[in-house]
Design a protein around this nucleic acid. Structure first.
Lengths: 138, 138
DNA sequence: GATGTAAATCGTAAATGTTACGTTTTACAT
DNA sequence: ATGTAAAACGTAACATTTACGATTTACATC
């Protein structure tokens, strides 16, 4: 999903198309990796020096709520990235240093479908953590 | 791993065998599910009313460090449970209401071994979230 | 059993990440 | 141009976790 499409979609739902939202989605697009709220705030404040972190958190939640972002958490922080809506369901290798991801076209849920008894599944997480080539060298 | 074994192991490493540590591991043993630091504190304060949360956090970290506990995080909290050292490597169905788990004797890492290039794997997480039978009824 | 000491705990402060809210500003429909 | 609902600001509050000096305790040694 690109910046414009995402915000137009929100607009149809009654949300406003603001420069700050545009910039936030644009940063996710450019970075192509998981970002913490803090990282996002820092990027944003380069362009909007007085930016309130309330704005960042509020928009991150909004974007997540409407499927623009995916969220996960590790090291006591929530991390966000643009949802990979273009491909089919998949999982990621995640570099815990820089947040960069690589898709894995394999979902272990396929192997256990129908298995769990007396358990209502609401979600699942399959993530492989490590260090990407670049972070490994540094 | 039972309470005594765990604490004897720590003792060999130079840590003291205290009633509070014994009680903490005992609670994990009794509950057999993921507990947050807050839940543990509440259980502990029944027996040790003036207990400092510093003690709980410090010991949770210590237990994790020595493999007595497993840790994961969801809903902005770290959750701990006794490490399932008796069985072979496996994963869990996790009830996000009560923390109860059911083992899944399947690890998706087997299916992708050797696959990732230029990526140093340090860990992985495969968790299925939902509601157990009991919490579903309530 | 008494003693010394390093570890454990207490009590509390502080750091960190997140949510909340009243006020002001802004997007944008009319 | 105008009105209004949404967005953003500035800041307070909240929750979880980490940190630290002072006190207490476990336990090895005598």
């Amino acid at each position: 999903m690109d910046t414009t499409t995402a915000l137009q979609m929100l607009k149809k739902k009654g949300y406003k198309y603001t420069g700050k939202r545009e910039q936030m989605v644009h940063i996710f697009e450019r970075e192509g990796r998981y970002l913490s709220a803090k990282e996002m705030l820092e990027f944003m404040q380069k362009e909007y020096p007085g930016l309130s972190f309330d704005t960042v958190y509020r928009n991150l939640s909004l974007f997540e709520q409407y499927g623009i972002l995916e969220v996960t958490e590790w090291s006591g922080e929530k991390k966000y990235r643009l949802a990979c809506s273009s491909h089919s369901h998949h999982h990621h290798l995640i570099c815990t240093t820089c947040g960069k991801t690589t898709a894995i076209d394999l979902c272990p849920m396929n192997a256990i479908l129908g298995e769990p008894q007396n358990f209502q599944i609401t979600g699942h997480k399959f993530e492989i953590y490590g260090h990407c080539e670049e972070c490994m060298r540094n």
